[in-house]
Amino acid sequence: MTERTVDPPPRPARAPLPGPADPAASPIRYPLGPLELPVGPPRTPLHRAERCEGTGACARACPTDAISVDRSLGPTVVELDYGKCLFCGLCIDACPSGAMASVRFEEMAVRDRADLRLRHGPPSPPLAGSRLADEVRERVRRLYGDSLAIRAVDAGSCNGCEVEVAALLWPRYDLERLGIQLVASPRHADALIVTGPVTRNMRLALEKTYRAVPGPSFVVAVGACGISGGPFRDSPEVEGGVDRVLPVEVYVPGCPPSPVSLLYGLWLALGKVDQRLARGEIPADALRSPPR
C-alpha cells in the first residue's frame, strides 16, 4: 500500500504509554497470580449476627428485597441474598446497631444459587443441590479447561454489565491470556455468558442463541439482573433471571460485577479454582481487611 498523506502534522515523538506511571492500567496476573484488590471503599455487605438486634431496618432500606428479617419464629432469622444485592450500601447506612458492615470481597461467584443465600438463625433444612451433574462438570473441565470460546448475550441489561464484560478484553485483564476467547457467533462458542434480567422481548432470542451453541455447553449468569432480575425483578416485562429460561452453571453477583469478579467466575466454571462463598458466608481470610 502506498502511503498517502492526508493530514501532515509533524509526526510527534512516540507517545509514552500510560504505563508504569499509571499503575491502575497495568496488566494483572490474576487468576494465575495473587488477587490485588484495587483501592476504594468496600462495597460488599456483611451481616454480623453477633451485633444484630433484629430491627429490620436493613430489610426496609433494601431496594431489591435482598434482605429479610423474620422474628415471627422467636429467634431472629436474617437472610441476605447476594444474588439480589446491588452492592448499594443502603442497608449498611440504615442499620442502627452496626451489624451490617461492608468488606472488600470479589470472588463471589458460585455454582449453586443457594450458595448466594446467607442465613443467620436456627438451622434450616438443607437446600437443593447444584445443577450440573459431576460427570458433566468433569467433561466441561476436560474439554474446555485450556481453551474456551464464549459468546456474550445481553438479555436486556442496562449496559452496565456490558462495560465490565467488555473490560475483560482490555490490556489490564486480557482474557485471552487465559485461553478464553469472546467469539462473535454462538455457533463458535462453547458457553454463553448472559447479562440482564431476560426481558420478555429477549427471551426467544436468548433461547435460540442457546440452541445454536454446540453442546455440551454451559451458561454463566452475570450480575444481579442475570441472577434474579436485579432492580427490575418486580417488572412484568422481565422474566427475572437467566435460570428462569436456561440451566445456569455459574452465577456472578454484582451490579455490575467487576472484571476481577468475572475472571473468577469464568475460572470457577472451568473448575480451576474452588468456590469461596458457601451458603452465603464470606470466608474468614477475606475478612482480614477490617470491615468499615
Partner: peptide, 13 residues
C-alpha cells in the same frame, strides 16, 4: 482502553 481502565479505577477509588 488503558486510560479508560484508569478512569474507572479512579471512580472506584
Amino acid at each position: 482502553n488503558r486510560l479508560r481502565e484508569a478512569a474507572y479505577q479512579t471512580l472506584r477509588a
